[in-house]
Amino acid sequence: MSEVVLETKDLSMEFPDGTQALKNVTLTIKKGELVSIIGPSGAGKSTFMRSLNMLNKPTEGQIVFEGENVLKARGKQLRQIRRRIGMVFQHFNLIKRSPTYQNVLHGRLGYLPSLKGGLGRFSEEDTRQALEILRRVGLEDQAFKRADELSGGQQQRVGIAQAIAQTPSLLLADEPIASLDPSSSENVMTYLKNVCQEDGLTSIVNLHQVDFAKKFAHRIIGIKAGEVVFDGSPKELTEGITNYLYYSK
């Protein structure tokens, strides 16, 4: 449990319009940890998460993922880092017109040569794996339906399946249940936690529902206005801290 998977040092990000989204975020994430990041909307949770795989570029600081400097990575090296970081999005971001299993297979793109992956020539082994992963998230019956025929909760499980197909060492989930109803949320979080525990994945989940975060995570990080203001176990997260996070100016 002591091996460090991810380390950020003094990570700062300023948007072109001058908004300071992240201020000197220094964090260490160890192997097998389930971390939940909480905080109000606009606090910088998403920006932080999207920086980790360079979907947006931090202006200062350092990110070290499994010994590699993410911010220095370009081209092929960056793609090889990204394929080891699975990501689940708030709005699922599936290819709506493609069948479900195809969406899961997209998780393998980083492992295929550009042309082969572009033409969708996935190996039989990959396809078998994709169907197996769909079974794990309880969607084996939906494998050949178009992604947009599925309900929101099901689509998010496809999103998780796609991330798992990458065989990642780190799983990022950016507000995975923010656009789902309470029962689907419960369901998606259960699948997410099970998958992480079965595969021994390290995982960071952005949530704004504190109760879900407490139930899901081993460790909770509170971010407010781009700064880490809390870092501890769910038990240490008292009501006073939550109130400070969400309500005080």
Binding site: R50, N53, L55, R79, Q80, I81, R82, R83, R84, I85, G86, M87, F89, H91, N93, L94, I95, K96, R97, S98, H106, G107, R108, L109, G110, Y111, L112, S114, L115, G117, G118, L119, G120, G159, Q162, Q166
Partner: peptide, 25 residues
Amino acid sequence: TGIIDALKATGASQFQVVMQGIIPS
């Protein structure tokens, strides 16, 4: 744009993003 982000996040190359994400969409 989320579709493009999602495919990029899997480590897909630009060509793969176009062929597997944009064209089907």
